[in-house]
Amino acid sequence: MKMQVVTENIELCRLEEHYEEIPHVHENWVQLTFAVRGGSSVITQGTSGFIPEGAGIVHKPMQEHQIRVDEGSCAIVIKMRTSLWETLQHEEADCITVEQDINPRELNAEFQRWIAPLLLTDGDDRSRRSLTETGVLLYLTRNLKRGDCPDKNPPCLPELHRTGDPYMDRVLEYIHLSYTSSISIELLSSMALRSRYHFIRSFKAVTGFSPYQYILRLRIQRSKYELEYTEATISAISAGLGFASTSQFYRAFVKITGMAPEQYRLERKMG
């Protein structure tokens, strides 16, 4: 038996007893399979294995796999478009391990929260789909196990403080996770359960900045790290941080730091 909900970027499935699929690959999707009751059989690239309860496995694009769920067992599958998976990983793609450990009861409860809004509507509510995607992304960010990563100087972003408002906290978590991507005020205000006008006022009261200014400062802070610790070109840094053009990045950097990107890089290298 299979229960399934789908958004633009995520597919959520609950596979119950007596479910078996044929070997297949996903061209532009990453699949995470978690055993939440009993265990599940898995065949990866022709090699048989078993996912015990409380464990999971990650299948990358074009990696052939097959999942079987037997009587008395249940698995939850999360498929993500590669673009969203890359956002989740940032620059630590190799650090997320293939084999994962999760809390089955917690994941079961989260799964119900993710799918409930979509099951209660006709499926054409963009804000509800976005909320579901955000919930999945935040859960995975907090819970996915990572291995040893190459030593590197981490980007120094402002510390993420709790506001006391769970909805505003969720907005700030999402921004810190996705600040290099295009983020609409409509999405953020829907996450905060406020109108656009009241959301902007509330956000500024909490952070001291408008949402646009806050995101811009995160990007500039990250660019300072890139300029100091990497050899990336100005245009590459600009594109990687989501700026529409190098000139836009240049103007923002000068306005916030008081110097040009090249000058900042030179001073840090010499210092």
Results as ranks from 00 to 15, higher is better:
P261F: 07
K2L: 12
T121L: 06
G242E: 00
D94M: 14
V25I: 14
G72M: 05
L118V: 05
I256M: 08
T163L: 02
H176G: 01
N28H: 15
E99H: 14
K255C: 03
P52K: 04
F249N: 02
G54W: 06
I102P: 01
R268I: 09
R170Y: 02
V171R: 00
I10D: 06
D125H: 13
N9W: 05
Q89G: 08
Q31T: 14
I256H: 08
G46D: 06
H161S: 14
R142Q: 11
L266D: 15
N143R: 15
S83F: 07
G39R: 09
H176P: 03
Q45R: 14
T246F: 00
V171W: 01
I237P: 00
T246H: 04
F243C: 02
H161L: 12
E71I: 06
M80W: 01
G39L: 06
L157K: 00
N153T: 15
S40F: 03
D169C: 05
Q66P: 02
Y250K: 11
D169L: 05
H161N: 13
L266G: 10
R265G: 07
T207I: 07
R217V: 01
H26D: 10
S202F: 03
T233I: 01
I115H: 05
E106C: 13
T207N: 05
L216Q: 15
L266C: 11
K269T: 12
L188F: 04
G164K: 08
A252E: 03
R194G: 02
I215W: 00
G164D: 06
P158I: 09
T87C: 11
N103P: 03
F253L: 02
E8A: 13
A252K: 06
S182Y: 15
R129L: 08
F209N: 11
E20D: 11
A35M: 07
M80H: 03
M1W: 09
L266K: 15
C13P: 00
E64T: 12
N143I: 05
G56L: 04
F50S: 08
I183N: 07
R146M: 12
T233W: 06
Y19Q: 07
G258R: 00
T7C: 04
F209S: 07
K79H: 07
A192H: 07
S223P: 03
